[in-house]
Simulated scan of single mutants.
Amino acid sequence: MRLPISWEMNMIKTLIFDFGDVFINLDKQGAMKNALELFQLETFEADMIKTNELYEVGKISTSEFIQFYNAKFSDLRETDIIEAWNYILKDFPEHRFEFIKNLALQKDYKLMLLSNTNNMHIDFIKQKVSFFDEFQDCFDVFYLSQEINLRKPNRDIFEFVLKENNLIANECLFIDDTKANTDTADAMGFHTWNIDETSEDVVTLFETKKELF
């Protein structure tokens, strides 16, 4: 006996989560303000933006990244650069960890993390978040942009995820706080939740997107 077509179309099998401002809180504006004050600039220069992107996709190492900023701002210490880079990372509310841990125990969905994240950020988080390893173990797949050499919102990162895991886009729900990222996923047929970190919380997933479940 076939299931109703409408139910089949809404069958979510895979949940794909962003990390920042979905699980761990970020201070994007504060980090930008802090960095511009440190560098005594009004805006990030083109070579800085390019270097940041290269680091985020693993095209340069942490030492090369720091060397670039040391050369550009010779009066700064290495610790100044590292602290400015990690300034964006704030607290990781434990109730969100409990949410994903419970989801993992239920085994109803394939769970994936897809994050534009780099080694310095992950090293910092591991030092500050006691349950990070257990959090990572909740996911069937844990993709960091620096490790797979791809980043959101580029289409190729979503193509990679689909191909590597034999997924169908309309059987996936992608949750991300950045609209450019969910826009790309939308265009490719994913179900999406462009979460508003100022008023929404990932733990309400099954209430907020109940039409999909």
Rank of each mutant, 00 (worst) to 15 (best):
N52M: 14
F73E: 07
K210E: 09
D137Y: 00
L15W: 02
F132Y: 15
A31F: 02
N149Y: 10
L89P: 00
N10D: 10
F131D: 03
A71N: 12
F68C: 02
V129L: 06
D201F: 06
F124H: 09
E164F: 08
E159Q: 15
K128A: 02
E83N: 06
L54E: 14
L114C: 10
L114E: 00
L173R: 06
A187E: 12
F206G: 10
M11T: 08
A180E: 13
N10R: 14
K50I: 15
D27H: 09
S61Q: 10
S6G: 06
V129F: 09
S130R: 11
E211C: 03
T117A: 05
L167K: 08
N34Y: 03
L105Y: 15
H95M: 10
K128G: 02
F17R: 00
K163S: 13
Y87P: 04
E207N: 10
D137C: 02
F19H: 06
D123C: 04
M120Y: 07
K107N: 15
W7Q: 10
G189F: 12
Q106M: 08
V22Q: 00
F142Q: 12
R77E: 05
F97E: 02
E53F: 01
E37G: 01
K179A: 11
S63N: 12
I125V: 09
G20D: 03
T117W: 01
N70K: 15
E164Q: 15
E207I: 09
R96D: 09
E134S: 13
D75F: 12
L144M: 14
I157K: 06
K126D: 11
F23R: 05
N170A: 11
F39K: 00
G20V: 05
D21I: 02
T43N: 14
N170I: 13
L36S: 03
T62W: 00
N10G: 12
M48W: 14
V161Y: 01
D196L: 10
T208G: 05
N194V: 04
F135R: 09
I122T: 09
F160H: 09
T182C: 04
A187Y: 10
F174P: 03
